[in-house]
């Protein structure tokens, strides 16, 4: 469903993503782990078609993001890192607008909006203006936006960032649930999340994949602890730089 081959992104002389390859198939939740600045968000922005790759190939459900971006984008639901929203709208009018942008109209639109409001527990704020929402609700509104067209591919950039423990738990459960019939790629730097929600995880450091496997396999590599492995594969590189 998501096929990424030799993806590279340079910002001037700086290499943010370095020859990255991975695939996510239907029914799989791939956790994207890595320290801040590893290139997780940059990768996701390329996969979602927000900006072009310097080189490499991205296929979404067999559609090339470079050649048929508009069509490929219809397959993706995306939650950007900062959960951006139009502050002048209400939650339900914003969700309705996203539905319209995705070609959902009339009765189907109403149903889609109320479905995602239910899934993301937004009933209590549905009529509220977005700029009066607390951070957790903003995040969930943006998550709801990514689910409105029931996409085949879901890309979530730090979906649990800024949520309280209950909400974190709910979102992880939701990701796991959605992962049964979609291809999900989500990034995090919270290692517990990997075990809670992922079927597979990669650790990215300075734009490269440094470890790859199921949570159990990764744990084994780190002598029984993900933290151990994370420190091992990511500090080695920063130590080299320093």
């Amino acid at each position: 469903m998501i096929e990424v081959k030799n993806l590279t992104k340079r910002f001037g002389p700086k290499v943010a993503v370095d020859n990255l390859s991975f695939t996510v198939t239907k029914g799989e939740v791939l956790g994207f782990l890595g320290p801040n600045g590893a290139g997780k968000s940059t990768t996701m922005r390329m996969v979602t078609g927000f900006f072009p790759a310097t080189s490499g190939d991205i296929q979404i459900c067999g559609i090339s993001m470079r050649d048929q971006a508009e069509e490929a984008k219809t397959k993706i639901g995306y939650l950007p890192e900062s959960a951006p929203l139009y502050n002048d709208m209400t939650v339900s009018s914003f969700l309705g607008w996203v539905a319209e942008m995705r070609g959902i109209k009339g009765k189907a639109k109403k149903e889609a909006v109320s479905r995602v409001i239910d899934t993301c527990f937004l009933q209590s704020v549905a009529k509220q203006a977005i700029d009066t929402l607390s951070k957790g609700y903003r995040h969930r509104t943006c998550l709801a936006q990514s689910l409105i067209h029931d996409p085949e591919v879901l890309i979530l950039d730090e979906p649990t960032d800024g949520l309280d423990p209950n909400q974190k738990h709910e979102v992880r459960r939701l990701i796991k649930e959605l992962g049964k019939e979609k291809a999900v790629l989500f990034s995090t730097h919270i290692l517990e999340e990997v075990e809670a929600a992922c079927s597979r995880a990669v650790i990215v450091d300075r734009g490269r994949i440094v470890a790859d496997g199921t949570p159990a396999e990764l744990k084994e590599k780190g002598d029984g602890s993900l933290h151990e492995l994370f420190r091992k594969v990511t500090t080695r590189d920063t130590a080299k730089v320093a």
Binding site: T48, E71, Y78, P80, P84, L85, V98, M101
Partner: peptide, 14 residues
């Protein structure tokens, strides 16, 4: 400034 350009840029539009 608000980052909504990222939403707009990833919706199926030109």
């Amino acid at each position: 400034r608000t980052g909504t350009i990222e939403l707009l840029g990833t919706l199926p539009t030109t």
